[in-house]
């Protein structure tokens, strides 16, 4: 079967960085990629509609400034978001991104990051699967709907906040429920928590 070309939209003002990263991504990548470059001028929304990329690479501040449009596009096109990091960033602002590329990353690292992301791509594309929640996911769901933050859950279960977030995304994908109050209803209906706890 012919592999489908994956479109990446690279948004970056600096010509040197944008073109450099574009070359790095194309080199030695076993998935066929096509890279669209965009220097940030003009109407982004129209640009994305026309380019219809699967992956969007841009600085975290770009994602932050265009939060509303991006999340609508993410929903519509199942866009994957990759942050291009130059300097220290507030970790909270990065939590909505699917992967990160640091300006000091070696070429291999950058390629590995994108390959890892592409691996997850087919599953991200499908809607909720028919796998049931694992016992670990139920445990996390219970803590989540009881009002614990990601950090608190991580501490309680001795795992990293990043892992908690990954579980959380999987739970939401499997159940196709995105809000915590929606998850609460699911948890009560399935006796994961009692009505009193809700």
């Amino acid at each position: 079967m012919k592999k489908e070309e994956i479109k990446i939209l690279l948004i970056e003002k600096s010509d040197i960085i944008r073109k450099g990263l574009s070359v790095l991504l194309i080199e030695k990548n076993n998935t066929p990629l096509s890279i669209e470059q965009y220097n940030g001028d003009g109407d982004l929304l129209h640009y994305i509609h026309h380019a219809s990329p699967k992956i969007l690479i841009a600085s975290p501040s770009f994602f932050d400034q265009n939060k509303k449009q991006i999340s609508a596009l993410k929903e519509k096109y199942q866009l994957l978001l990759v942050g291009l990091i130059y300097a220290f960033q507030d970790p909270d602002s990065l939590s909505s991104l699917d992967a990160l590329i640091y300006i000091n990353d070696r070429a291999e690292k950058v390629q590995a990051t994108i390959n890892e992301l592409l691996k997850s791509y087919p599953t991200m594309n499908t809607h909720s699967s028919n796998e049931p929640l694992s016992s670990r996911e139920k445990e996390i769901l219970k803590l989540l709907v009881n009002g614990n933050t990601t950090k608190q859950i991580a501490t309680a279960l001795h795992i990293s906040p990043h892992t908690v977030n990954a579980h959380r995304k999987n739970i939401m994908r499997k159940l196709d429920i995105k809000t915590v109050s929606g998850l609460t209803i699911y948890a009560v209906l399935n006796n994961i928590i009692t009505l009193k706890e809700a």
Partner: peptide, 24 residues
């Protein structure tokens, strides 16, 4: 102006799914 359209849409989607998949 704006920001929280998306959260509002999520609530509606969740409700649909609860009725389709999860309510006894």
């Amino acid at each position: 102006y704006g920001e929280h359209h998306d959260d509002i849409e999520d609530v509606l989607k969740d409700l649909k799914n609860i009725l389709i998949r999860h309510l006894p």
